[in-house]
Computed example of a mutant assay.
Amino acid sequence: MFNFNGSLLDDDTSFLNEKNRGVQLGDAVFEELRVLNGDIIFLEDHYLRLMSSMRILRMDIPMNFTMEFMEQEILKSISEGELKEAKQIKFTVFRNSSNDFSKSDNSISYFITHKTLADPFFILNDQAYEVELYKDFYKNSSMLSNLDTNNKIVNVVGAVYAQENDYRDCLLLNERKQVIESLNGNLFVVKGNQIKTAPVTDGCVNSILRKKLIDIVSKLNDFEFLEESISPFELQKADELFIVNNIEGIISVTKYRKKDFVNVTAKNLIGKLNAAARMSLTKSV
């Protein structure tokens, strides 16, 4: 089952048409969340980010589109028997079309899909994970690059390149050839007692887990946090590279070119990230 504008539909139900702007123009934005035992992890952060994304894209936000409404619609999408399972939620909002798909009154529709997660909380993926730079296409360092929109063609083609060359992931560059993120999440670079990630002004996705990890690292006495541009030349000099996303948690990069990496810092941070997730559930009760 999935939720389309408040109505629950069976999987594979046709509900879009040829004029849909999300399909025709990529005119859609989404938020990915985790639900555990009927509670949404970092709900307020995800809601505020979705509202901000919709405003940036000049979508009309309905008066009833409150955080409580978002929570209600997400939980309505999950059957009662599945509420005790860990769920990955994708909340997609798209601009409605007029008779001409290229025109709209800026009103919106939404749909919510979900799938079961194997792990209730965030995990550390420390399996073999080799990455390489993806240099065929670049992401622009603009505010639109900070959003999760349906325009993910660079990620799609980059993933094909990674598969063809037996890499687990690729690192994306902006037009200034600065490393901004991976195909699968935000990149963090560890060198000595410094932990660095790219600023949003360089064009990385401004994800909720990026924000949470920055909050955590900034409070650690043993590390200095830097939000600065990352040069490709820094990668092989780093002690550790790891990637974060809202679904998997933390992914340790094990190899980049001739450099093998450790994952000491990532192991230290995964517990703190899950503690923050539990705290968000406590506050929502």
Rank of each mutant, 00 (worst) to 15 (best):
L269H: 11
G22K: 13
F233H: 04
K76N: 13
S207F: 08
F188H: 02
Y138E: 08
F225H: 02
K177P: 01
L171R: 00
N96C: 05
E234R: 14
L50E: 04
R210L: 12
T149V: 10
Y47L: 03
A28L: 12
T197L: 04
M59N: 07
M51C: 13
D105Y: 01
Q72P: 00
T116G: 06
E80V: 11
R21H: 11
N125R: 01
Y129E: 05
K135Y: 09
V190F: 05
D136M: 13
N125V: 00
D27M: 13
F223E: 03
F122W: 10
R210W: 03
T113Q: 09
H114C: 12
I153Y: 14
K255S: 07
I230F: 09
D45L: 09
L144Y: 15
I247H: 06
L183S: 10
L241G: 06
I41K: 08
I230L: 15
N64V: 11
K103P: 01
Y134N: 04
T116L: 10
K219A: 09
D215Y: 06
I195L: 05
G38V: 01
K135D: 14
D105S: 05
F188P: 02
V35M: 01
A118W: 00
N150F: 15
K212F: 07
T113D: 08
F42A: 06
N155D: 10
V244C: 09
L281E: 00
G81P: 12
N245T: 03
E18R: 09
F225M: 14
K258R: 09
P120C: 03
L33A: 07
G158F: 03
F94E: 10
S218E: 08
K283W: 05
A277Q: 10
E164P: 01
H46K: 12
K259H: 09
E234V: 15
N165S: 06
R49Q: 07
R49K: 13
F233E: 06
E164R: 11
V285G: 11
P120K: 13
I89K: 06
E224Y: 02
N140P: 02
E227R: 00
L33R: 05
Q24W: 04
S52Q: 11
V179F: 00
G271M: 12
T265G: 00
G81E: 14
G249L: 13
D126T: 10
N274L: 05
T282M: 11
F30G: 04
V190Q: 03
R168V: 02
I78S: 09
S141Y: 08
D260A: 14
K237M: 09
F242Q: 02
K76I: 02
